[in-house]
């Protein structure tokens, strides 16, 4: 085990490595705290995802979390697989920040007096 068993982060370091991990974590916990579902329902899906598809080193933990969340949301009938897939491809085709380069400031508020 060596590396896998040892603390890889100093204490207090956020457990999220990328923003999407925090978003999916928060979505799932928020829906539970809102009483939309019982935690055990998600937990069963998460265990199943980890057992069936989990990486040996556990590095894909939040990917499994997302897969379990997609099953939860679709099982509950909140969204359909088709809706999710369609929105995802729309987002991929329409990035929020198109490639551009701004060589200087994009806005300037000049001094009020000199």
């Amino acid at each position: 085990m060596s590396a896998a068993a040892h603390p890889d982060l100093p204490e207090g370091t956020p457990s999220f490595h990328e923003p999407w991990q925090a978003r999916i974590f928060a979505l799932v916990t928020r829906l539970c705290e809102d009483g939309r579902y019982d935690w055990d329902r998600f937990k069963v899906l998460l265990i199943d995802e980890i057992e069936r598809n989990g990486a040996p080193d556990g590095a894909d933990y939040y990917e499994r979390w997302l897969a379990a969340a997609e099953r939860l949301i679709t099982d509950m009938g909140l969204l359909s697989r088709d809706e999710l897939a369609a929105r995802k491809s729309h987002l991929a085709d329409h990035p929020p920040h198109p490639t551009h380069a701004a060589p200087g400031p994009i806005a300037v508020d000049p001094p009020r007096r000199t």
Partner: peptide
């Protein structure tokens, strides 16, 4: 990073959050 496309997985999360 404005011109790095978002990862497939980040888009899945964003799609879910937007729709919900």
């Amino acid at each position: 990073r404005h011109n790095a496309p978002e990862s497939d997985i980040a888009l899945r999360v964003k799609a879910m959050e937007q729709l919900l």
